[in-house]
Structures are given as structure tokens and as C-alpha cells.
């Protein structure tokens, strides 16, 4: 990734069911940085992520991706990837079929085999996703991030249903992604082991 990417938020606020979840939120995230969003249940973490993905409009304020409003930017959805509570996998398809579909929709970086080997799923290419464990499915979703060209990762609770070893693996990839010039926005209940030099934190 050669050029720098930048996500800027100005004066974001979010109202849900007549309750102000957050107000006048500002931040700037540039290539190589990780933004960790903390907060209790119901504080609006998922709502904020929904706003950052452009699915939900903020009550006020705006978001810029490389100096363009994200709702007008042609590049934002090309560059951003999102993993929510669901992995976005079709359980009736094999691991490989799922990844091939994702690659057909976006730009490709790694081959499917390489990406699956990286997340420790080598040899599972032709296994139906239904037969994978919850943790393996989560890792397959990570493999999808790795094999498509997506500088900006937006991750909602990426560590749920992962064992300790997998969390470690996941964190490693987040760190590598940031070091290679990627951007990561994530929410997490868990204490993360990511180096503090990379991190920004927002507490809702």
C-alpha cells in the first residue's frame, strides 16, 4: 500500500430512540493506526461502527475518507471492509467458494490458498462452512480480509468466539495490517495486546 489513507470524523453525534448516544465526536485516523472503541453495552459502539461504515447516517457531523464525504466517495466502499457480529459467510458453500465470491466483488491481493494458510485453515478449502467451528468461521472471515484489497478494516467485536491462540493470531494480523499502512477500527471487550504506539482509543 503506497499512498496514505485518512479517515476524519467531525462533530459526529448519534441519537437512538430519543437518547443521545454520543455527541461532537472528532477523530482522525491515518494509515498505520488502530482505533479502539470502548464502552459499556448500549453505549453506542455498534451504532458508531454503523455510522463509520456509512450504513447509518449520523444525526449531525460528517465523515471524510481521503478528503471526500464518504456518502459521495466512490473509493470508500472499495477500500473499506466490515466484519460484524455475523461473518458474512454462506454456510452452505465451501470455504473456497465463499472467498472466491468475495474476491469477485472486490480487488484481489493474496491467493485464496495463501490467505487460508495464513489463518491456519490450510486444507479446509473444500469444507462446507457449516462444518467449521465458530472460531474457524471467524478466522475464515479474517482470511477474507487478507485476500481482498481493503486498506480500512472495521471490526465489530472481532475476538468473540475465538480461543486465546486465535485471538493472538488475529491481533498479529491487525498489527501487520497497520504496519503495512492499513487502518483498523475495532470494538472489543477483551484487553488487547496491541502495541500502544499504534493505538488510539475512544471511550463512549
Amino acid at each position: 500500500m503506497t499512498h496514505l489513507n485518512k479517515l476524519e470524523a467531525y462533530q459526529l453525534s448519534c441519537v437512538r430512540d430519543d437518547r443521545i448516544l454520543f455527541n461532537e465526536l472528532n477523530f482522525t485516523l491515518t494509515s498505520g493506526q488502530v482505533l479502539l472503541i470502548e464502552g459499556a453495552n448500549g453505549a453506542g459502539k455498534t451504532s458508531l461502527l454503523r455510522i463509520l461504515t456509512g450504513f447509518r447516517r449520523a444525526e449531525s457531523g460528517h465523515l471524510l475518507w481521503n478528503e471526500e464525504l464518504i456518502e459521495n466517495s466512490v473509493h470508500f466502499y472499495e477500500d473499506a471492509a466490515y466484519i460484524g457480529h455475523n461473518n458474512g459467510l454462506k454456510v452452505a458453500l465451501t470455504a473456497q467458494e465463499n472467498l472466491r465470491y468475495a474476491q469477485a466483488l472486490s480487488s484481489t491481493t493474496l491467493t485464496i490458498d495463501d490467505a487460508m494458510a495464513k489463518v491456519g485453515l490450510a486444507g479446509y478449502q473444500d469444507t462446507l462452512v457449516r462444518l467449521l467451528s465458530a472460531g474457524q468461521q471467524r478466522r475464515l472471515a479474517l482470511a477474507r480480509l487478507l485476500c481482498t484489497h481493503k486498506p480500512l478494516w472495521i471490526l465489530d467485536e472481532p475476538f468473540t468466539s475465538l480461543d486465546r491462540a486465535s485471538i493472538k493470531l488475529f491481533e498479529q494480523f491487525i498489527e501487520t495490517h497497520a504496519n503495512q499502512g492499513g487502518l483498523v477500527i475495532m470494538t472489543s471487550h477483551h484487553e488487547t495486546q496491541l502495541p500502544h504506539t499504534l493505538m488510539q482509543k475512544i471511550h463512549l
Binding site: 466490515y82 455475523n86 459467510l89 454462506k90 472486490s106
Partner: peptide
């Protein structure tokens, strides 16, 4: 329905292509 439930709909939105064509 299925795409909405399993999160593939987000995947389909977050592509460089116009959603209406997909």
C-alpha cells in the same frame, strides 16, 4: 432474507460496484 441474516448483505454493499447493479 438470508443475506441480511448472515451478514453477506454488508459484503455486497461494501464493494466498488454500484449496489443497484448487484
Amino acid at each position: 432474507r438470508a443475506d441480511y441474516d448472515d451478514g453477506s448483505l454488508e459484503l455486497m454493499v461494501m464493494t466498488p460496484h454500484p449496489l443497484s447493479i448487484l
